[in-house]
C-alpha cells in the first residue's frame, strides 16, 4: 500500500473513532448509543488492521480481529443485555435530561479535543509519524469518554462512557507502540470485560433495588 493511502486510511479510521465518540454525546436513545459504540469498535479494529497492514505484522492483525470481536461484538452485546431487560420495564430508554445539555456537551467535546491535541504535542514530537499524529484523537476519545461519565445519567450511558475511555486508550496504545506485552494486553482486556460484567450485574441489582437505572437515584450515601 502506498504511504498516502496508508495515511488517508489511518486518518479515516481514526476520524471515525472520534466521530462515534462525539455522536454518542449527541444522540439520546440508549440503543443508538450502543450501536454507535459498536461502530466505534469496528472503526478501532479497522484502525489496528490498517496499522497491521502497514507494518505487515500478522500479530497485529490477530489483535485487530480480537479487538473487533470484543469491542464490536461482545461488549455491545453485554450492553444490549443491560438495556434489554430495561425495555420490559416502564423506564425510558433515552437519556432524558443529561447533567449538561447536548449543545453544551458538543461544545465541551470540542474544547476537550482541542485540549487533547495541545497536550499530545510532546507525544507527537517525540516520534513524528502518521500513527503518532493520530494519537491526539485517542486522547480526545478518552476525555470525551470521561465527559460522558460525568454528564450522563443513565447506567447504560455510564457503561458506554467507561468503554469509550477504554477504546481511546486502546487507540493510543496501538498508535504509539505496537502493544504493551501480550500478558498485559490480555489482562487489560479481561479486566475491562470483567468490569463491564460487574457493572452489568450491578445494573440489574440497581433495577431490582431502585426500580430503574437512573443514577440520580444513587444519592442515599452522602454526608
Amino acid at each position: 500500500m502506498s504511504d498516502t493511502a496508508y495515511v488517508q486510511l489511518l486518518n479515516l479510521t481514526a476520524g471515525a473513532v472520534l466521530l462515534c465518540a462525539v455522536l454518542v454525546l449527541w444522540r439520546r436513545e440508549l440503543a443508538v448509543i450502543i450501536r454507535l459504540f459498536a461502530a466505534q469498535g469496528v472503526a478501532l479494529a479497522a484502525l489496528i488492521a490498517v496499522l497491521a497492514w502497514h507494518e505487515g505484522s500478522p500479530e497485529l492483525a490477530v489483535l485487530a480481529a480480537g479487538v473487533a470481536v470484543l469491542r464490536a461484538g461482545v461488549l455491545p452485546a453485554v450492553l444490549r443485555r443491560a438495556l434489554g431487560t430495561a425495555r420490559e420495564g416502564t423506564e425510558p430508554v433515552r437519556e432524558v435530561r443529561p447533567v449538561v445539555n447536548v449543545a453544551a456537551s458538543l461544545l465541551a467535546a470540542a474544547l476537550l479535543t482541542l485540549l487533547a491535541f495541545a497536550v499530545s504535542r510532546p507525544i507527537v514530537e517525540l516520534a513524528p509519524s502518521p500513527a503518532t499524529q493520530a494519537v491526539p484523537i485517542g486522547m480526545a476519545v478518552v476525555l470525551i469518554g470521561f465527559f460522558v461519565l460525568v454528564t450522563r445519567r443513565r447506567a447504560v450511558s455510564h457503561l458506554v462512557g467507561f468503554l469509550l475511555m477504554d477504546n481511546g486508550i486502546t487507540a493510543v496504545g496501538f498508535l504509539t507502540t505496537a502493544g504493551i506485552g501480550l500478558i498485559v494486553e490480555v489482562g487489560v482486556a479481561l479486566d475491562v470485560l470483567l468490569a463491564l460484567l460487574v457493572l452489568q450485574v450491578l445494573t440489574g441489582r440497581m433495577r431490582e433495588a431502585f426500580g430503574n437505572t437512573d443514577l440520580d437515584e444513587l444519592r442515599e450515601l452522602h454526608d
Binding site: 447533567v99 476537550l112 485540549l115 495541545a118 497536550v119 504535542r121 476525555l143 470521561f146 465527559f147 461519565l149 460525568v150 454528564t151 445519567r153 443514577l215 440520580d216 444513587l218 444519592r219 442515599e220 450515601l221 452522602h222 454526608d223
Partner: peptide, 29 residues
C-alpha cells in the same frame, strides 16, 4: 459547608476528577 462536597452524586464525584485532569493538562500545556 463541607457536606456539600459529598452530596452523593456520582456525576459530581467524577466531575472532580475530570476537572482536575483537564486543569492539570492545561497546566502542562
Amino acid at each position: 459547608a463541607g457536606r456539600a462536597l459529598a452530596t452523593g452524586s456520582v456525576h459530581r464525584y467524577l466531575g472532580y476528577g475530570l476537572c482536575t485532569l483537564c486543569a492539570l493538562m492545561l497546566l502542562l500545556v
